[in-house]
Amino acid sequence: MKTQEELTEIVRDHFSDMGEIATLYVQVYESSLESLVGGVIFEDGRHYTFVYENEDLVYE
């Protein structure tokens, strides 16, 4: 089982391919040991929310 830090790094690596990240945040109250819920804001102003669970990243 991966730690929350490892899950965060996986998500950061994925989004870094889309541009320069200004902020990546995790909603700790919605996340667990198996899933990571949060959002990412890019330097150009784009903002996505995401759920990473079971090695699957869903964002909008």
Rank of each mutant, 00 (worst) to 15 (best):
K2C: 06
Y29L: 07
Q4Y: 11
D17P: 14
I21W: 03
I21D: 01
E6Y: 08
E30S: 13
E20T: 15
V51E: 05
E20P: 10
V58D: 07
V26M: 04
E20R: 14
L7G: 02
G38R: 00
Q27E: 11
D44S: 04
E53G: 08
G39Y: 13
L24P: 00
F50L: 01
S16Q: 11
E55R: 08
D56A: 15
S35V: 13
E53H: 11
D13G: 15
T3E: 04
E34F: 07
H14P: 01
F50I: 01
S35Q: 12
D44T: 03
F42N: 00
E6C: 07
F42S: 00
E60I: 15
M1S: 14
E5H: 11
V37Y: 11
M1D: 07
D56E: 13
T49V: 08
H47P: 00
E9M: 12
E53W: 13
Y48H: 02
T49N: 08
S32K: 10
E5I: 09
V51T: 11
A22S: 12
E20A: 13
H14T: 11
D17L: 12
V58R: 15
R12P: 01
E6M: 09
T49H: 10
T8M: 12
E43L: 15
L36M: 09
F42H: 00
H14Y: 11
Y29T: 07
K2G: 05
S32L: 11
E55A: 11
D56L: 15
Y52C: 04
I10V: 08
E9N: 12
T8H: 06
Y48A: 02
F50V: 01
L7A: 04
Y25E: 04
V40F: 02
G39K: 06
Y25A: 03
S32R: 05
Q27V: 15
F42L: 07
N54T: 05
T8S: 09
T49I: 13
Y59I: 09
L7F: 04
D56C: 12
F15G: 00
L7I: 12
Y29D: 06
T8I: 11
T23S: 10
H47I: 06
N54P: 05
S16L: 10
M1V: 12
D17A: 14
V40I: 09
E43T: 15
L57P: 02
E9R: 14
L36I: 11
I10G: 03
E55W: 09
V26S: 03
Q27N: 14
E9P: 02
A22G: 07
S32P: 07
I10R: 10
E55Q: 12
L33H: 13
S31K: 11
V11W: 02
V26A: 04
Q27L: 15
F50S: 00
S35M: 13
S35N: 07
E6H: 08
S31L: 08
Y52A: 03
E53R: 12
T49L: 12
D44E: 02
S35R: 15
E9A: 14
V11T: 03
S16G: 08
E20S: 12
I21N: 02
L57I: 10
G45C: 05
H14C: 08
S32D: 11
H14D: 03
V37G: 06
L36H: 01
Y25N: 04
D13F: 13
E9Y: 08
A22E: 09
E43G: 09
E20F: 11
I10D: 05
L7E: 02
S31I: 07
E9T: 12
F50N: 00
E6G: 05
L57Y: 03
E53C: 10
Q4V: 10
Y52W: 09
D56N: 15
M1Q: 14
E9G: 10
S32N: 11
L33D: 10
T23W: 11
Y52P: 00
Y59E: 03
L57H: 02
G39P: 00
R46W: 04
S35I: 14
E30R: 08
G39A: 08
F42M: 12
V37Q: 10
E5Y: 10
E5N: 08
E5P: 06
A22R: 15
L24F: 09
H14E: 05
T3H: 05
L24Y: 04
E53D: 08
E60K: 15
E55L: 09
V40T: 03
E30Y: 06
G19A: 04
F42Q: 00
V51R: 13
L7T: 03
V28S: 12
V37D: 03
V37H: 10
S35F: 12
E43V: 14
I21K: 01
I10Y: 07
N54M: 10
Y48Q: 01
S35A: 07
D56I: 15
I41M: 09
D17H: 15
V51G: 03
T49P: 03
L24I: 12
V28W: 13
T8W: 08
I10T: 08
G39F: 13
R46M: 05
F50Q: 00
S16K: 14
L57Q: 01
E30H: 12
F15R: 01
A22D: 08
T8N: 04
G45A: 04
R12H: 06
S16H: 08
H14Q: 09
D56S: 15
K2H: 08
L7Y: 04
T3M: 05
T8R: 09
L57W: 05
E30T: 12
V26Y: 05
E6N: 07
E43W: 10
R46H: 07
L36A: 04
M1G: 12
I21S: 01
M1H: 13
V37R: 13
V40P: 00
G45P: 00
V40H: 00
D13W: 12
D17Y: 14
V58N: 10
S31Q: 12
E34Q: 15
Y25V: 05
R46F: 04
Q4K: 13
D44P: 01
Q27W: 08
F42R: 01
Y52I: 06
V28E: 11
V11I: 09
I41E: 05
G45I: 02
T49W: 07
I21Q: 01
R46D: 05
I10C: 06
I10L: 11
N54D: 08
Y48G: 01
L57C: 05
Y29E: 06
V58Q: 11
G39R: 08
Y25H: 04
V28G: 09
I10A: 07
A22L: 11
N54L: 08
Q4H: 06
F50W: 08
E6K: 06
S31D: 09
D56H: 15
E43S: 15
I21F: 03
E5A: 14
Y29N: 06
V11H: 01
L57F: 07
